[in-house]
Write a protein that binds this DNA or RNA. Structure first.
Length: 594
RNA sequence: GGGGGUGUAGCUCAGCUGGUUAGAGCGCUGGCCUGUCACGCCAGAGGCCGCGGGUUCGAGUCCCGUCACUCCCGCCA
């Protein structure tokens, strides 16, 4: 008989009755009846009930071993009486009568309870991640993650993509997020950087002629975390293709994403994914990552208020601002509208105007200043009627869009308007190539500087840069941005011009992106790609609100690994070898850990 | 860097307008219990009320500071 087990803990069935079996695992739960003890033994696969009574030799040992200890149980598989069958367990028709009981590893009193639904605090969970991972939900999430990644690999390979590894130790990139730096022992004063993404490498793979590349790629960015953004590191499904236009990329990625989401969830994935121009997304949804499960849409009503008697909005429009209207189904009451207004003010907005709609037209301070025909026109545009309200966000185009967009989300949640059984994907396309930095007034890249401008060199030379669009797109699912992507700029002249508009000299570009720029001069195929976030994909499929729930060993919000103690101190000898000298003020004393 | 929330037993939390000995569930320890499956019943131990200062006759509760965790803004081309 095998030293540890003949069966795992989700294997024994009626057909095994009468045989002797051996199982090993953790003591999940014990039910002690004094003269009779039940033990639920747990391993990766499931639970098996073991039983022992007072006359057995092992009784005392079973009774005193604490939960989460690791034990090996050998015994006879017995059919349970019909009234004691547990239909909730796959192994619930049988149990194991304990003949021998061996403790392989004892557990102390637990800092968090593995067998309870109740969540411990984040700090405890992260410090004792190995215990947290034993719990059912988290354990299942990580299994799901493994299966999702395996499915993605299979789907990509079947489509003719090849998976390559790109360097982890590379050069610091001057744009974008903060880099993690790695000092060089051989080159005093010089540093590697961990890649923020394999962006330049994957483009070079295309120039090397491999045609279609993908990688489940680790990416490193030294930026602050969010609930949907893990600090430090994350994984992307990094993809690049040669000789393609935008729709070719969509045609490859759409079935992969839809297939994976359908394979691992019970929800529907409507196809084809909607294509929404960026400017339309900002107008209708007030965001560049719209949740299309929410049926509400925002409408521009600036023309109606232009020159109207409602002075605040008329002045806004006259000053170049806009007024946006959001339908509020069933919101036709003072209490609801006042609450929306107070909420808007809590966000720092001046307020949120409203019209309450009754059988006989509109009520409220705005409606009283407008002609009936104007109110009727707004009803028509927003599709509202008696019992509803229309909410208004006024201000600069960006401010009004943001407020209306947030109000749209809030109403959707509060009134439960959104679908709950769907993954609504969309492609947001036609992003602007440049944007004006509000603080400095300068023009900079709004997204990836390597994207191809629509209209090419001609557009860059003749158009207002702020009007130039890029072959730049996002894939969004249920309001979560999964990825940006682009058709790349593979033409050195266009690239130098594009960078010049953003304030970079040719020398700057050569110095910073020389490797790739040089490659463009020896025959570069037109190419493009995308890089959906793996962690966010799994998070959506697992229906988890926080990205830590789908990562084996996540760091906390301050980018610390509480279990391993990272980042940690290193020895003076290590630093000397790396030509590094500390330059930190004396650490404040009294820290809980060194 | 900024804003919000939280911090009370090993864990999850309650603790009112400041008031006498700070509670519950789970866990832990001991006892009882032969068909449970979140077993049940009885008893017990366990508290720097995050930390420091202040107001007050009196602070878990109010004020100031600080630390930690978390959510958000900035940031993430």
């Amino acid at each position: 008989m095998h030293r540890y087990r003949t069966h795992h803990c989700n294997e024994l069935r009626v057909e095994h009755v009468g045989r002797t079996a051996r199982v090993s695992g953790w003591i999940h739960r014990r039910r002690d009846h004094g003269q009779l003890v039940f033990l639920d033994l747990r391993d990766h696969f499931g639970l098996t009930q073991c039983v022992v009574d007072a006359e057995d030799d092992t009784f005392a040992a079973v009774e005193e071993t604490r939960v989460e200890s690791v034990v090996t149980v050998t015994g006879r598989v017995v059919r349970r009486d019909p009234e004691t069958v547990n239909p909730r367990l796959p192994t619930g028709e049988v149990e194991l009568r304990i003949d021998s009981f061996e403790v392989l590893s004892t557990a102390g009193v637990l800092p968090l309870q593995v067998n309870a639904e109740e969540d411990a605090g984040e700090e405890t969970r992260l410090r004792y991640r190995f215990l947290d991972l034993r719990r059912e939900r988290l354990h299942a999430n990580i299994v799901l993650r493994s299966q999702v990644i395996a499915s993605i690999r299979r789907r990509m390979t079947e489509r003719g993509f090849m998976e390559f590894q790109t360097p982890i130790l590379t050069a610091s990139s001057p744009e974008g997020a903060r880099d993690f730096l790695v000092p060089s022992r051989l080159h005093p004063g010089r540093f590697y950087a961990l890649p923020q993404a394999p962006q330049q490498f994957k483009q070079l793979v295309m120039m090397a002629g491999y045609d279609r590349y993908f990688q489940i790629a680790p990416c490193f960015r030294d930026e602050d975390s969010r609930a949907d953004r893990s600090p430090g590191e994350f994984y992307q499904l990094d993809v690049e293709m040669s000789f393609v236009e935008q729709e070719d990329v969509f045609a490859e990625i759409e079935p992969v994403l839809a297939g994976v989401f359908e394979e691992f969830s019970d929800r529907t994935v409507p196809r084809p994914f909607a294509r929404i121009p960026w400017s339309e997304a900002m107008l209708r949804y007030g965001t560049d990552k719209p949740d299309l499960r929410n049926p509400l849409q925002i409408h521009d009503v600036s023309d109606i208020f232009d020159g109207s008697d409602f002075a605040i909005f008329a002045k806004t429009v006259a000053g170049g601002g806009v007024v946006r209207a959001l339908p509020g189904p069933g919101c036709g009451s003072r209490a609801i509208c006042d609450r929306m207004n107070a909420w808007a003010q809590s966000l720092g907005a001046p307020g949120m105007g409203y019209i309450i709609l009754g059988e006989d037209g509109g009520r409220g301070p705005i409606a009283s200043r407008l002609a009936d025909a104007a109110v009727a026109e707004m009803r028509r545009r927003t599709g509202t009627g008696p019992g509803d309200a229309i909410f208004f966000a006024a201000g600069s185009e960006a401010d009004a869009a943001r407020l209306a967009g947030q109000a749209r989300i809030r109403l959707g949640d509060e009134r439960s308007l959104s679908e709950t059984d769907t993954y609504r994907f969309c492609w947001v396309v036609d992003f602007p190539m440049y944007e004006r930095d509000e603080a400095t007034g300068t023009v900079g890249f709004s997204h990836n500087p390597f994207s191809m401008p629509q209209g090419g060199l001609g557009a860059l030379e003749t158009m207002d840069p702020l009007d130039v669009l890029a072959y730049q797109y996002d894939i969004v699912c249920n309001g979560v941005e999964l990825s940006s992507g682009a058709i790349r700029n593979h033409l050195p002249d266009v690239m130098l011009k594009a960078f010049a508009i953003a304030g970079y000299t040719t020398a700057d570009v050569e110095a910073r992106f020389g490797g790739m720029l040089n490659a463009f001069r020896y025959g570069a195929p037109p190419h493009g790609g995308i890089a959906p976030g793996i962690d966010r994909i799994v998070m959506l499929i697992a229906n988890e609100p926080n990205i830590r729930e789908v990562i084996l060993f996540p760091m906390n919000q301050r980018a610390e690994d509480l279990m391993m103690g990272a980042p940690g101190e290193v020895s003076d000898a290590q630093l000397r070898e790396l030509h590094i000298r500390r330059n930190v003020r004396a650490a404040p004393t009294g820290g809980e850990r060194p």
